[in-house]
Each structure stands twice: as structure tokens, then as C-alpha cells.
Design a protein around this nucleic acid. Structure first.
Length: 360
DNA sequence: AAATCGGGGAA
DNA sequence: TTCCCAGATTT
């Protein structure tokens, strides 16, 4: 305990006054958000998954529609995966949706449809990591557990002037200790949410509004004028570009060929128009490749558009071509010919929604 | 420890 | 352009 660096950081930090100032501010200034209407642990859970790496404003319409479609945990457990992915369409990180449904089904079968209050049991659920576990325990069940996200690390890095690199996984545990030592036992929900709300509204990454900050007097970085230099975070390297050929293949009745992606990896189980990396096949040989893979003969007609789609770790350059189905029977089991007006029933990633939109 | 896994909005 | 968002999982 003597060599614990946390004691140095927390020296002179007025814990009780800080708790009061933070919670008081949160209760006055908190935003009116859909998942704050009640304390249904299921809704808290859904919101926390959706909010991972995603802005509040982006999540709101998805959350409302999702809860309308799957009002209870059992409704979500009983749904089919395609339906869930369709509700998640456009939100990104689609494994979140599949993991959530997997976890919800686990709760139904193993925990009598009640979300566990035990930290160990919660952590076993798919998609529930250290942050989400703490968020559910504190917000839904009023249990004083840390819920450390990017906001909390930014806020505490400034409050206590901690200059560890927050992009490193191991550093999160230091901030969990900060929260564990300072969290309000009376109102852990307001404390944790207050930290995040403060990070979102006041203690922002750039140009923090220190003059409006309810805990300004507790902030070591502000007193030293270094709030803009914190937190320390290494920047990520730039994405690799991959060029693809994409084919919109239409038969003489207007049906269009789409396929489901593999159940693992990027955009797992989402649907797309057939595509191939340009370094595997060039445009001249693409007809052969299509016949090999799908068992159909096509004639490539014209270039429809060029799409640049940016992911967090790579960039797709899509050369989209229109093609006509000449003959043959579809042999690829993950592919299907769909009437144009039924395409909207399938979940597409945004990159292929752009193509879909261009079609209509 | 580093890479993978989406997409959008702010500056 | 660059950053980064109520992160988790895999390698």
C-alpha cells in the first residue's frame, strides 16, 4: 500500500467534496436521454452496447427503434439474427449486435431471464467487458463498481494530472483504481454517469470548458494550466487501402444477385454485392471468376460508380460494375437472386448501401 | 501488446 | 485531413 502510486495521485484530493460537486452538477445538468427514462437493466444494457465507440446523437434513433422492435430481453432472445442485424444496420461494429443477442439468450437459459448482479457472471456474457460490466452494475443496480471509458480516463487524467498513455490497455486499470477509491457509495450511478457526462459536455478532448466546470477547483491540470496537454494518447497509424471489383448482376426479370458474408471477421453475416480484391482478378478475367464461384455466365456492361469507403483500420476502393446474367444456375450457397424491391429486407453495410441507393 | 472490428461528426 | 467517440475480442 505504501508503494501504490495511486496514493500519490490522490494526495490532497478532496474525495467527499468532489463527489458532492460532481453529483450535484449531474443531477441538475444531465441530458434527457431515452435510456434514462427508467432503470430497466435490459435497456441500460442495450444502450451501453450501442454507445461503445459511438456518439450519443448517433445512438438515440437506433436505441428507440431497437427497443420498439425488441421491448424486452426475451423479445430479443426470440428474434432471428438477421432481424437484429437489420435493426443495427448502419451503426457499425456489427459483432456487438450478434454478441448482445448471444448474451441475452444466455441470460434467458442460465439466469431465468434476469440480468445477473454478480460481477463474475456478468463478465462471462459475450460483449460485456470491464466497462459495460461496471456500467450495468452501477447504473442499473446501484452497485459501486468503476465503469471506465474514454471520458472517465480523460476526466481523471486531468483531475489528478496522470500522464500515462490511455491508449494502452493496462492503463485502464489505474483509472479503475481511481474510481474505486473515489466513487460515491450512496449514489454510484450518478457518480459514474456524472464522470461521463462531464467528459461529454465540459471536459471535452479539445478546448475543455474549464470556466463552466463544476469540479474546477479539484482539477490539478487546470491549476497547472496543462489541461490541453492531457490525456496523453498515441495516435493510430493510417489505414491500408484495398481496391475491389464489385458487380451488380441482374437477370432478365430484374432480380439482383447478393451474397451473405462469412460468419466471422469484417462485417460478419452482413449482405453485399459480389466483390473481389483487384489484386486477385482484373476486370478482363472477372467473368471467369464469377462463373467459377457462382456457376453463372455474365456479361459485364459498364462502370456504375467508384466508391471510397473508410473503416477504422482499412479503406475500400470499390469499382462498381453493372452486369447481366446470361445463363447458368446459381451454385454458391451463400448467394441469392432477389427482386429489387426485396433488397431492403437484408442488412447491408454502409459501403453497399451506397450501391443500393445508386440502383434506385 | 497490438490488431481487428464501423461509421459519423467536429474542427 | 485528423481525431475520437459510454470498448470488446482476438492474435
Amino acid at each position: 500500500m505504501k508503494n501504490n502510486p495511486l496514493n500519490d495521485y490522490l494526495k490532497n484530493f478532496k474525495i467527499e467534496a468532489f463527489q458532492h460537486d460532481l453529483i450535484d452538477w449531474f443531477q441538475k445538468e444531465q441530458r434527457d436521454l431515452p435510456w434514462r427514462q427508467d432503470k430497466d437493466p435490459y435497456k441500460i444494457w442495450v444502450s451501453e452496447i450501442m454507445l461503445q465507440q459511438t456518439k450519443v446523437d448517433t445512438v438515440i434513433p437506433y436505441f428507440n427503434q431497437f427497443i420498439e422492435k425488441f421491448p424486452t430481453l426475451v423479445d430479443l432472445a426470440d428474434a432471428n439474427e438477421q432481424e437484429v442485424l437489420k435493426a443495427w444496420e448502419g451503426l457499425g461494429y456489427y459483432s456487438r449486435a450478434r454478441n448482445l443477442q448471444n448474451a441475452v439468450r444466455e441470460v434467458v437459459t442460465s439466469y431465468d431471464s434476469k440480468i445477473p448482479q454478480e460481477s463474475k457472471q456478468l463478465a462471462l456474457l459475450k460483449g460485456v467487458g470491464p466497462y459495460t460490466k461496471g456500467a450495468i452494475l452501477s447504473i442499473a443496480y446501484d452497485i459501486p463498481e468503476p465503469a471506465v471509458d474514454g471520458n472517465v480516463m480523460r476526466v481523471f487524467s486531468r483531475l489528478l494530472m496522470i500522464d500515462h498513455d490511455i491508449s494502452k490497455q493496462s492503463v485502464r486499470r489505474l483509472f479503475e483504481q481511481c474510481v474505486s477509491e473515489t466513487i460515491s457509495q450512496d449514489n454510484p450511478s450518478a457518480f459514474n454517469q456524472g464522470l461521463m457526462e462531464l467528459g461529454a459536455l465540459i471536459c471535452t478532448p479539445k478546448k475543455p470548458s474549464c470556466m463552466l466546470c463544476p469540479v474546477q477547483e479539484h482539477c490539478k491540470a487546470y491549476h497547472n494550466g496543462v489541461q490541453e496537454q492531457l490525456p496523453v494518447k498515441t495516435k493510430k497509424k493510417k489505414q491500408k487501402e484495398i481496391p475491389y471489383l464489385v458487380f451488380v448482376i441482374q437477370d432478365d426479370q430484374g432480380n439482383i444477385l447478393i451474397e451473405q458474408r462469412p460468419e466471422e471477421g469484417l462485417l460478419a453475416n452482413m449482405w453485399q454485392f459480389p466483390m473481389i480484391p483487384l489484386f486477385e482478378v482484373d476486370l478482363e478475367h472477372s467473368v471467369n471468376w464469377i462463373e467459377q464461384k457462382y456457376g453463372i455466365k455474365v456479361s459485364v456492361e459498364n462502370n456504375l460508380e467508384q466508391i471510397k469507403h473508410v473503416f477504422s483500420h482499412l479503406i475500400w476502393q470499390l469499382g462498381v460494375y453493372k452486369a447481366g446474367l446470361v445463363s447458368g444456375n446459381l451454385s454458391e450457397k451463400n448467394a441469392v437472386l432477389v427482386p429489387k424491391n426485396e433488397l431492403a429486407n437484408y442488412p447491408f453495410p454502409v459501403s453497399h448501401q451506397k450501391i443500393l441507393k445508386h440502383l434506385i
